[in-house]
């Protein structure tokens, strides 16, 4: 069960603005999905190691050799706002 307050807290963490309706829908839908998912709580998994990679690879390292960077025009080409050769953003107030 995930209530409206939790939905709002998670939405804030995820930087998603939700309408009042969406908060309700989200609370209902996520609760239903979590209900199903919570069955894994019944499994005995105490000594089981976690798998974050299914592949057995270690030390995928890169030599410290420069590769050409993007020309600045290209780096900025998709920017919604360009200011002084940089990416313009509204000033972080209480973000």
């Amino acid at each position: 069960m995930i209530d409206r307050a939790q939905v709002l807290h998670v939405a804030r963490l995820a930087r998603l603005e939700l309408t009042d309706d969406e908060v309700g829908t989200m609370s209902r839908e996520l609760s239903a999905v979590l209900d199903h998912i919570e069955k894994i709580g019944e499994l005995q998994l105490d000594d089981v190691p976690a798998t974050s990679h299914v592949i057995d690879v270690v030390n995928a390292l890169r030599p410290d050799e420069p590769v050409p960077s993007l020309p600045r025009e290209q780096a900025l080409a998709n920017a919604p706002e360009v200011v002084d050769d940089g990416f313009g953003v509204p000033s972080p107030g209480a973000a």
Binding site: S69, L70, R72, G86
Partner: peptide, 26 residues
Amino acid sequence: TNTKMFCGCELSFGDPPNVHTCPVCL
């Protein structure tokens, strides 16, 4: 180092903005 932590862009100090970027570090 010569390059960034996770990409081949050169490290810089005092260069004009956004001239050491690539898909990874952007």
